[in-house]
Design a protein around this nucleic acid. Structure first.
Lengths: 278, 278
DNA sequence: TTACCTGTATTGTCAGACAATATTGCTTTC
DNA sequence: GAAAGCAATATTGTCTGACAATACAGGTAA
């Protein structure tokens, strides 16, 4: 999934040290370091000794803290534990904590000031369209609600984006779209097919000629991730979907914006059914 | 402008940086930097050190480097100068550089690996809908192209968002919308008016009931920033615009999605003219 | 009360060291 | 001569410990 979906925080093999965190609620911790130290069995060495290569400490930390914030462990306005505290609970250096926090600040999940600490920003300031934030957001208890929200969003942007693509695509962009469409048809596995499907829709966004539409690709990737994980599709359903994709491809190729828009609407309606019926 | 527009990197005025930095570097300052100094015009003190007064070092650094990347100084794929080099050119510690770079990584402008360095990510991975990135992007040589791109985007999302708002708004959300509309009419200055205008459109996004639409508010804020800075509006034009806003407010209040959508379309068409005619 | 000052907790910044990692080029082996 | 392995090296990643800047909280004085 996610052909180019990697991000700084896209680290799924989590360092083992994260498992040592199960306390940490925004309460007034009364017993200091002793309690924390006691949680670690004497035989176990430093938790970060078992770190999994490929994901840096600050990155994993940012993921962990970011997830907690988005999940609602620390509601907007809450002052987070201070850097020293994070550093202690995770057994990492303060620099690592700071770098993690800086990443979350860059996503507008946090802000901070000396003497105050770091606090969670109001939700409407969160950059939900960031890939990482979206991924954390997607772990919401009710996955179907999330999917529906994303799908609704697709209804808003994809028909128009496709119409623009039909008007403005270059030959090169057309080639990408056509190739992705072809590869969808020839795919040997559902996963392979989904990958091509994603590429198809991303290519259309790029071909729309509006730079601001491109970043919305993360939503499409996310949607396909979850669709892929939560639905199984029948064979004739796949064939129907393939036909619909080909119609879109054709209308973009023939530069028919209105027809292209309608074709996308049909496809989305079909996807809606798949979601609804699962 | 930008009622709630602040960000980690959104820092405007304050203390001087160059001077402060110069004496902060007591002993290290020696002759061996000749080579580096020679790269730049001799007359200027520290051309690279565009320190934004009033904000932290890492934040200013992130702004400076981020701007350079978006501006195209380092095209995608380029390996940036390494941390030590940045640290030297800006006369700041390596930690500050690292925190700045981490912020840019969080926005997918950069990625890095040990032994390789940090490189600029492909443009389609940039998070253009991030407030900071958008602001840097807006400094493009051709402001009008930027405005047109944003405006086109508004055409895609705002009509639909407003239709949803008409269907799903709560009374509380309606109150916000109505109040912003009223304050637009009563505004004493153009700036005050623009502020209320922005609030009006943001409130509609929030009332749409789709969480993913909310972050797009940054685009609206950006659009108004630039419209405000680059256009002057005639009095009767303002009155017309006010009527249009009131029509939108009314249709949302009366829960008429289609009428609301059309009202927004009219308003946007009007804004298009303002842009085109300036 | 009001104004000012002072203590203090927290982030911000710095410096220097070592670890981990992956490219590069060299060396060995077949 | 080609392939495979190995060492040298450059760069980010991480840790530690120190001090500076900031702004809240609470006490003191007018």
């Amino acid at each position: 999934m996610r052909p180019n979906g990697r991000t700084a925080l896209d680290s799924f093999p989590k360092p083992a040290f994260l498992e040592f965190m199960r306390d940490a609620k925004p309460s007034k911790e009364k017993s200091p370091k002793k309690a924390v130290a006691a949680e670690r069995p004497a035989g176990v060495r430093r938790p970060d000794a078992a770190r999994i290569p490929g994901s840096s400490v600050h990155t994993s930390l940012a993921s962990e803290i970011g997830l907690r914030i988005v999940r609602g462990d620390y509601p907007p306005g809450t002052i987070l534990p201070n850097e020293a505290k994070w550093s202690e609970t995770f057994s990492v250096s303060r620099s690592a904590v700071r770098e993690a926090i800086k990443m979350l600040m860059a996503k507008s999940l946090l802000a901070s000031r000396p003497k105050i600490g770091s606090w969670v920003e109001p939700k409407e300031r969160w950059n939900l369209l960031d890939r990482d934030v979206l991924a954390w957001y997607a772990t919401s208890p009710d996955r179907e609600v999330f999917l529906r929200t994303v799908q609704e969003f697709r209804h808003i942007i994809e028909p128009e984006a496709t119409a623009f693509a039909a008007m403005r695509r270059t030959d090169e962009q057309m080639a990408e779209i056509s190739q992705a469409c072809r590869e969808m048809g020839e795919a040997k596995s559902l996963q392979e097919r989904t990958r091509a499907d994603t590429r198809f829709h991303l290519a259309i966004l790029r071909a729309s000629g509006n730079d601001l539409l491109v970043p919305l690709g993360v939503l499409i990737e996310s949607a396909f991730d979850h669709l892929f994980a939560y639905t199984t599709r029948e064979l004739d359903d796949l064939q129907l979907a393939q036909k619909m994709h080909e119609a879109i491809e054709r209308n973009i190729r023939l530069q028919r914006p209105d027809a292209a828009r309608n074709a996308v609407r049909k496809l989305l309606a079909n996807t809606d059914n798949v979601i609804r019926s699962r």
